[in-house]
Amino acid sequence: MLIDKKHIGMKVPPHAVTPTAWQLKWFAKATGETNPIYFDEAAASKAGLPGVLVPPTFFFCMDMDKDEPFDYIATMGCDFAKMLHGEQIFTYHKPVYSGDTLDFDGQVTDIYDKKNGALQFIVKDVKVSRQGEAVCDLRTVIVIRA
């Protein structure tokens, strides 16, 4: 079944996230990061930073940090078991740090299919801001297999 294109333009409920040094420490450990500005508050402070630096892909983790991160997929009637993460794109405007409060405001911006509907693609664009200032844009492409 093809997803109804009326869902293009659907707003995703906005949410706010404040990244913590605690979680970033585990993220650094998991990803093999050795530069202490990514996990040690004292080292970040010594480097003149207001907090631990949020690494490039952590914006995705924060975008997912809500009760129902795939509510928009559910609304379209798609089966989660057939869902894959196809692409992830970030555009960066400003660095962000532990302790910053970030607002995530997202919208479904495209729905298309390939191979006669065997693969369907849902594009979600999210703008991340800090006190109204744009810091990062995310584009998440979800693939739904037939």
């Binding site: 490039p56 692409e87 970030f90 660095p95 584009r139």
Partner: peptide, 11 residues
């Protein structure tokens, strides 16, 4: 990190 303008991946 501040030098990175965009970063995209295909899985």
């Amino acid at each position: 990190q501040g030098a990175i303008r965009s970063f995209g991946v295909r899985f």
